[in-house]
Structures are given as structure tokens and as C-alpha cells.
Design a protein around this nucleic acid. Structure first.
Ligand SMILES: [Mn+2]
Ligand SMILES: [Mn+2]
Ligand SMILES: [Zn+2]
Ligand SMILES: [Zn+2]
Lengths: 139, 139
DNA sequence: CATAAATTTGTAATCATTTCATTTATTAAT
DNA sequence: ATTAATAAATGAAATGATTACAAATTTATG
């Protein structure tokens, strides 16, 4: 995904592709690290002159409203953002705090019998210790 | 579940059944409303003389560590607590902010192929509009 | 009862996020 | 191309949930 494709993608989803928005979306899709606002800020501040943290909040909130990003609530004290809006699960490691994706087939997602409910979002996440950290502990 | 049973339950799980702990656990199991700390506080302050919000935080953190309560991270700005530690899903209504349970059979829970990972917690939650609120909007 | 240990309390600190007024950039009109 | 109107970005201050911490109180132990 280059800048052009990202601009087109935003436009298609009703988001005007302004410079900072494109840069932030580009960051999300290229790093795929489910970052916090602070992670985005400390990485992009070098690249974008005079970037404000408030702008990142504004842009991410816009992305979520426009369905081009997901807000992940896994830990109570932070929101993680994800440009992959398809149905998939997340694993958060308690040790390294990293979040990794795992695929779930849509038909594997349990569908509850909630008559008359409108379901907008489905979230499935796990917490534990990743294999990398588990090995380190063992050693 | 009366006070006696709650005391025994806490004791069995390594939590000394002090008065306020029993009252707070009793609140959780009898109301089953997935409350925030503030909800618990404003309800119990009438019943327990000189209750501090800090105590509720302390007790709930102890409950979670001792696996007699779950901390639910559904919205980024609040933690909800649940005395039902069995595997089940949650639905949060955007309108009335209520959280309701739905059963998921354990074998329905998708198990990702994460080789070498230690999985401690599994969370599945939905967001949308409950049938009650959906009807009100329609009318 | 006396003493030690654990718990509770209230205040202050922390930290992520939002609000808001001002400044700057972008678009549309002249 | 200027200008006016609109939208976006900025930074400082406010908010709100949670935690830290020291002092006061309660509970357990001898
Ligand atoms: Mn993801
Ligand atoms: Mn529940
Ligand atoms: Zn790890
Ligand atoms: Zn509702």
C-alpha cells in the first residue's frame, strides 16, 4: 500500500485524505503493531514536523467512526488501534505487552442467540504469555 | 448465596472473608450487573458506613488476582467487574450502556493455533443495540 | 490486654483522553 | 491570484478513572 492507494482507500470510505491522515494510516498499515496513541506519536514526531498528540486522537477517532480502523480495548488503561478491520482475534502477551493477530474463520465465531439485538462489533481476545517470552522464562 | 456461602467461597480461594469483602462480593453475585467501581460505590455507600472508593479498588484487584472475579475491558474508559468467572460472552448496548451475558459452549470457543503460547484469559464481547433500546428507537 | 500485622481511609499523584479557544491549512468564490 | 469561508491542527487546560502513599483503624496473635 503506497500513499496513493491509502488516499484512495480513505476517500472511498468518506475520509478526506489529508496529509497527516494519510501518514497515520500509512503507519498503521505498514507497522501492523496495534499501537497506542503514544507509540504512534513517538514514532511519527520525527517524520512529521510539529505533530500534535491531539491530532492523533482526532484522526484515530475519525478512522474508527469511518470504519477504517478498530479500537481495541484489551487492557483497561489503553486503547490500541488496528487498520485491519476484518474479523480476527488478538492475543496480548502480559510480559512483552505485544499484541498479535490470529485468524478466525467467520463461521467459527460463536453467534449468540440474542433476538432483536443489533450487533455492530465482535471482539475476541486472549491474554497470556507468548511463546517467545515463555521460552525466556523457562531458561 | 448468603453471607455464609460467600465467606466460605472466598476462603476456599485464598481470600480472607473480611466484612467489606463479603459485602462487595455479595453485591456482585446478587446484582449480576457487571458494575463499575462507581456503581458499586454509590450503591454500597448507603449500606456500609464510611466506605472508601479506594477500598473498592483494593478489594476488586484482590478478587481478580485471586480469580474470584473477572475484569472486563469493553469500553476504553471503564472496567466492569463480574463474579461469574466461567467462560461466557458479553454484549454491551451503546444506548443504555447495560452489559448482558450470553452463554457460549466451551467447544464453540474458537481455539487459535498459537504454538507454545500460554493462554490465561479468553474474552468474547459484542457491541451494538439491545432489543429493548432497538424497539424504543423504532417507535 | 498488649503487640504486631493486615486492612482501610483520604488525599494527592498519575496518566490517558477530551474540551476548547486560537492558529493554520484547505477549499470555494470573486 | 486574492479573498472569504470552511475544515483541520495545535497546545493548554480540564476531566475522569485508577494508583500511590502515609496515617488511622481493624483484626489476629501471644
Ligand atoms: Mn489485529
Ligand atoms: Mn458476565
Ligand atoms: Zn511476549
Ligand atoms: Zn440497551
Amino acid at each position: 500500500m503506497d500513499q496513493q492507494q491509502i488516499s484512495a482507500y480513505l476517500l472511498k470510505n468518506g475520509v478526506r485524505p489529508l496529509q497527516k491522515r494519510v501518514k497515520i494510516m500509512n503507519y498503521l498499515v505498514s507497522k501492523r503493531n496495534h499501537p497506542t496513541v503514544d507509540m504512534i506519536y513517538s514514532d511519527l514526531i520525527h517524520e512529521i514536523n510539529g505533530l500534535s498528540k491531539t491530532t492523533i486522537y482526532n484522526v484515530l477517532n475519525l478512522f474508527v467512526e469511518s470504519n477504517v480502523a478498530l479500537a481495541l480495548n484489551i487492557e483497561g488503561n489503553e486503547i490500541r488501534y488496528d487498520a485491519d478491520t476484518s474479523a480476527h482475534g488478538h492475543f496480548k502477551c502480559k510480559i512483552c505487552t505485544g499484541i498479535i493477530d490470529f485468524r478466525i474463520k467467520k463461521e467459527e465465531m460463536p453467534v449468540p442467540m440474542l433476538e432483536g439485538f443489533r450487533i455492530d462489533e465482535q471482539h475476541y481476545y486472549l491474554k497470556g504469555v507468548c511463546s517467545f517470552c515463555a521460552n525466556k522464562i523457562e531458561a
